[in-house]
Design a protein around this nucleic acid. Sequence first.
DNA 1: GTATGTGCAAATCATTTGCATTCTC
DNA 2: GAGAATGCAAATGATTTGCACATAC
Lengths: 167, 167
Amino acid sequence: MGPRAENQMSSVKKVEEKPAAGELAEEMAAFRSYLKAKGFRVTREREAIAEAILRNHEHFDVDELFMALRSKKPISKASIYRAIPLMIESGILAEVYLEDGHMHYEKVYGREHHSHLRCLNCRRIFEFSAPELAQVEKRIARQEGFKSLGHKFEIWGLCSHCQVEKD
Amino acid sequence: MGPRAENQMSSVKKVEEKPAAGELAEEMAAFRSYLKAKGFRVTREREAIAEAILRNHEHFDVDELFMALRSKKPISKASIYRAIPLMIESGILAEVYLEDGHMHYEKVYGREHHSHLRCLNCRRIFEFSAPELAQVEKRIARQEGFKSLGHKFEIWGLCSHCQVEKD
DNA sequence: GTATGTGCAAATCATTTGCATTCTC
DNA sequence: GAGAATGCAAATGATTTGCACATAC
């Protein structure tokens, strides 16, 4: 899966090591419960995909996931594409940004909600948390009669390194 | 086409008044200046595209723009696609969201910055302003050494109408 | 006049889909 | 078994690109 600049972000907690064995088992169990609850089947393919995602905290795209699965249990891209909406709906995955013409995802299950900072020069993505965003979401939803189900916030600009390099 | 800036929030489907003639002329002049400054040529095609966008405040996609231009001055989609990055860079246009597999845009020149609320059921997009977002952008950028150049915030959920209809 | 921009058609590329085969329940 | 899910290959659809011609400067 792809490189990520998360470690450079001071505001991101260091909960970002691989999940402990017990944690992974719990996460997988949650995914299986979701599938059963919805009447979907628990297949080896879906389990392999979910496990690959749950095992890391990187940003990734379909091709990287496909590659990562290849050695252990090859899964066709069609099945990966078919599994993604299920994983999003089950809450283990989220779309995070569009780049180079395709979508990038990240594990969200068990992680603290966070937003992204994108460097327009080096294209790296950084993470940060801003608690007031949840309040804005709630306030606007109340104000507009919406039942809110989530939000996304993104900032773009130049990272500290690229500001110096550029001009 | 889209909602007025003063509105705290409104459906993008609502009709809105066109910019006054003088306003449009000023907006077009700004776009021409941008092109000249960058050494790009001011062509009839670019002017027609910019004018079509500047004349309304709706959300739109490439196909709608193509159709809108057809009667007055047909422009190939290739040229429209080539003009879009210039218009974004010049600050008259912004990508707002991906839907049905393609990008949707809106005029930003001369409009107050705003965010979007998406109804997952009826798929309508509503607009709202939340001034604290600019502060979050600024604060996070300072905190992380970024030079921020913009942000995007989106909330999704169910609009008041769809909450009732659904469950 | 020269380089840039345009239109057209062909090419790309991510994602989706039809269908025969393989599994889960 | 029956109905779902998978893999493969073909289809789709948005966006991009090569190239010959038109046009801005």
